[in-house]
């Protein structure tokens, strides 16, 4: 087959001013979002390639019904923003990349046309004038960055439809070497009003008693101390009796992240159960799988280069 759908979700909005160290976090955030978009595929799209902050999906054959396509766009858009809302409320890191992640946006380009697949070793690539057209449509004059773009070729003379009360189609033309490409687009930002983040689990210490407490002063700033004490990845380097820590579910630290600790007397699962941050004080807790033990970490800024760490252990 030489005709098919081209479907490109494209993420934008990261500040160009993130520093070198923050680029690593923006890369991890984008990676997580791209994986989420791939997992949200429900109409049998194939991934051709990941192109920076975008994914080139395709599907040979007749174009899907517009409503089916909208449902796909809606699912990706809602999961994308739900993930960002959840990260914004749960994130440990306060770097520019992690803070500005909440402002990321998603647009989706959908086009129908001719293209073909070719293989180089184990890699498959798409080639054809409409692949170029779909990419050219990413660069356009649409002011906002959250929209769904549908080309006239995809509509196949079917009329446009409003699938929601707020949907409002605009028309435009993109001039390319292949001629004028007529397209329609509708903003998607309204969908964000329908997304609700799952509430954070409450931290309950009322049924527990403090059984241990210790503190120490360090000649360092509070953020550096927090990077070492807060991340599960360094825990085996300082927590006595911990031989290995395997992180399970998140590359960037946040409330809800889980890890399995190999201790000298067996394995335990711990998850991050709460977190709060101000410039002078950072608090976070870790709870065991059964909820019987809570380790309460408090970091206090004493001076620019002096910080205190207090660890309190609570048990049921």
């Amino acid at each position: 087959e030489t005709k098919g759908l081209l479907f490109i979700p494209d993420i934008s909005g990261f500040s160009r001013f993130v520093t070198e160290s923050e680029i690593n976090h923006s890369r991890m955030i984008i990676q997580e979002l791209l994986e989420l978009l791939i997992n949200a595929n429900q109409i049998g799209l194939e991934v051709s390639e990941i192109e920076g902050d975008a994914i080139l999906f395709y599907k040979f054959g007749e174009p899907p019904q517009l409503k089916e396509l909208y449902k796909q766009v809606e699912k990706m858009f809602c999961q994308f923003h739900k993930n960002l809302m959840a990260y914004d409320r749960r994130k440990y890191c306060q770097c520019k990349a992690c803070i500005s992640a909440a402002n990321l946006s998603l647009k989706v380009i959908t086009h129908y046309g001719e293209f073909t697949e070719y293989h180089v070793k184990n890699f498959s690539k798409l080639i054809g004038k409409d692949v170029i057209v779909a990419h050219q449509l990413l660069k356009n004059d649409i002011a906002q960055h959250e929209y769904w773009l549908v080309t006239k070729d995809l509509l196949h003379n079917h009329p446009l439809a409003d699938f929601t009360g707020w949907m409002n189609w605009n028309d435009s033309i993109k001039q390319t070497e292949s001629g004028d490409i007529h397209f329609h687009y509708t903003q998607l930002s309204e969908l964000k009003n329908e997304i609700h983040d799952d509430p954070l689990p409450p931290l309950n210490l009322s049924d527990k008693r403090k059984i241990l407490s210790a503190s120490s002063l360090y000649e360092t700033d509070i953020i550096t101390l927090f990077h070492i004490a807060g991340a599960f990845e360094y825990r085996h380097l300082w927590w006595e009796g911990v031989e290995k820590v395997e992180e399970i579910n998140h590359s960037l630290p946040r409330v809800g992240m889980q890890s399995i600790w190999t201790l000298n007397n067996g394995k335990m699962l711990y998850y991050s159960s709460s977190y709060s941050y101000t410039d002078d004080k950072v608090e976070f807790t870790e709870t065991d799988e059964k909820g019987d033990q809570v380790t309460y970490f408090t970091l206090v800024k004493i001076a620019d280069n002096k910080a205190k760490l207090i660890i309190d252990v609570y048990k049921t």
């Binding site: 059984i211 241990l212 210790a214 360090y218 070492i228 927590w239 006595e240 760490l309 660890i311 252990v313």
Partner: peptide, 22 residues
């Protein structure tokens, strides 16, 4: 047990110092 656990926790806090120097 309690004294031993406290000593272990204190030792853990001391272990952070060389990590901060890296």
């Amino acid at each position: 047990g309690q004294k031993k656990m406290e000593a272990t926790l204190k030792k853990s806090l001391e272990n952070i110092i060389p990590l901060l120097e890296k």
